[in-house]
């Protein structure tokens, strides 16, 4: 179950090729790609800081939980850090399961946990030279509650 934390760009279509293939018990593959969004044309770039000692371990623990709970045949998480421009890919999640409900739910679970429990912090740099740390949203924390058993 690969987990990659990297600065380099990645190609989601390249990553998804072959994902879950070679297994005849996989009936559903879901993938999600997160992209740097600029709502009003003022964002120059985003920089993502992370906690190198913790990031990989924290994501692997989430992947283990998802794999067990939804009996995933395969799972992939890629998350970038460093500088990214609007339109650049930030991260992707892919899940392979027997049925689509499991594949979708596992992907959503991983997205919710990556947002609020993986040690990444986003900082925005505007074209005008202003900087601000992106605040965590109350909704993101709320989203985790639906996964509590």
């Amino acid at each position: 179950m690969p987990v990659r934390v990297q600065t380099e760009e990645f190609d989601p279509s390249e990553e998804i090729r072959g994902f879950g293939r070679g297994r005849t018990d996989v009936g559903a593959v879901v993938s999600f790609t997160g992209v740097v969004r600029d709502d009003d044309g003022t964002l120059d770039r985003m920089e993502i800081e992370h906690y190198p000692g913790m990031t990989q371990k924290a994501i692997e623990a989430m992947v283990d939980r998802a794999t067990e709970r939804w009996e995933l045949a395969d799972c992939l998480v890629i998350h970038r850090h460093g500088a990214m421009r609007p339109g650049d890919q930030i991260m992707m999640v892919a899940t392979a399961a027997k049925h689509r409900v499991a594949a979708f739910e596992a992907a959503e679970f991983l997205m919710d946990y990556l947002k609020s429990r993986a040690p990444f912090w986003k900082k925005e740099f505007t074209c005008a030279g202003k900087t601000s740390w992106v605040d965590a949203k109350v909704n993101d924390e709320e989203a985790l509650k639906r996964w509590e058993e």
């Binding site: 906690y51 991260m91 947002k115 040690p119 990444f120 912090w121 740390w133 605040d135 965590a136």
Partner: peptide, 12 residues
Amino acid sequence: REVAFFPPMTGG
């Protein structure tokens, strides 16, 4: 051995 302080995380 290691303590880390940080704001709420904003991954994804």
